[in-house]
Computed example of a mutant assay.
Amino acid sequence: MKILITSGGTTEKIDSVRGITNHSTGNLGKLIAETFLAQGHEVTLVTTKQAVKPASQPNLNLHEISNVESLLTTMEGLVKTHDVLIHSMAVSDYTPVYMTDIDELEKTEQISDLLSKSNSENKISSQADYQVLFLKKTPKIISLVKEWNPAIRLIGFKLLVDVPKEELFRVARASLQKNQADYILANDLTEISPTQHHAYLLSEDDSFEAFDKEGIAQLIYEKVVTHD
C-alpha cells in the first residue's frame, strides 16, 4: 500500500523573524511511518523542518512544508496518488494578516480597513508596548481530502484539553462524519506526557484504546492493513 502521513506542526509567519506555531514534535508521525516502513509499505511523509523524522530508506519519501499554504499545495497531488492518509500534523487554525500598534488601531474608524493591509517591513518594529495581531482562518485540509480522492482511507486526529471522555468522543465523531473519515484518533492533552499518550481510535461504531505512542502507531497499522 501507498501510505501518506503528515506530522509535525505548521508555522504561520508574522514577519521574517517571527511566527505562530505549536508544540508538535512529529514523534508520533515518525513512529507511525516507521511501523509501516518496517512491514515493507511505501510511505510518503509530509512534515516540517523542525519535526523529527525516520532515517532515510528506499521506501520513504519526504516532503517538507512550512505553513498551511505550502501544505495545501503539497497535499492535493499526493492525496490523489495514495491509498491511505494518516493526518497527524498539527495544522495552524489561523494565519496572520496584519500587525499594528495600539495608536494606529485607535485612529482607525473601521477595523475592516486594517484587514486589507499587510506588513511591508521584514521585521515589525518592537518599539510599541502593545501590538494587535489580526488573524484569519486557514483552510481545513482534512475537509478537502475526500474531494481530492473519494477512495482514500482517511485517519484524522482530534486533540482537546481537559474534557470528559464523552465530550472527546462526541467532538471526534462529529469530525469523523463531517470529513468522511474512516477513523479519528481522539486524545486529550492532559493525558499526554513523555512517558504516556492515552488515546482512542474511533470509528462510527467502535473505539479502540492505546496508552503510548508505540501502541497508537501499532493500533493504526492494524486497522489500516486489516481494513477492519
Rank of each mutant, 00 (worst) to 15 (best):
L159H: 08
A90G: 10
H197N: 06
F169K: 11
Q131E: 10
K117A: 07
E167K: 13
S175I: 14
L168D: 00
L154F: 13
V91Q: 05
A151T: 04
Y98S: 09
L144H: 11
T138F: 08
S92M: 11
A90L: 07
K137V: 12
A181R: 03
E121N: 08
S116T: 15
Y94T: 03
T138H: 08
L185Q: 02
S116R: 13
S118K: 15
N119V: 11
K158F: 11
E121G: 05
P164Q: 02
E109T: 14
A172K: 06
A128Q: 10
L185K: 03
P139C: 08
E204N: 10
R170Y: 10
K137A: 14
D206F: 04
I192V: 15
I102F: 12
K123M: 15
L144C: 03
Y130I: 13
L201G: 09
E147W: 01
D129P: 00
L135H: 01
F169E: 14
P164G: 06
K158E: 12
E166K: 11
K146T: 02
F169C: 02
S193N: 07
D93A: 03
A199Y: 00
P194A: 08
L159F: 06
V161F: 05
I86W: 07
D93N: 08
N179C: 05
Y200C: 00
I124F: 08
L114G: 09
D188W: 02
S125W: 07
V91W: 04
H197W: 00
F134C: 12
V97T: 13
L85E: 03
K158D: 06
F157T: 11
E109R: 10
N122V: 05
T81S: 15
S175G: 14
K140Y: 03
S203H: 06
L133S: 10
S112C: 06
K123Q: 15
L176A: 05
L160T: 13
V132W: 05
T81I: 04
S143V: 00
Q177C: 00
E121H: 06
Q177F: 02
V84I: 11
Q196W: 03
I152D: 05
N149D: 02
K178Q: 15
K137G: 05
D188G: 00
Q177Y: 04
L202F: 06
S116G: 15
N119C: 10
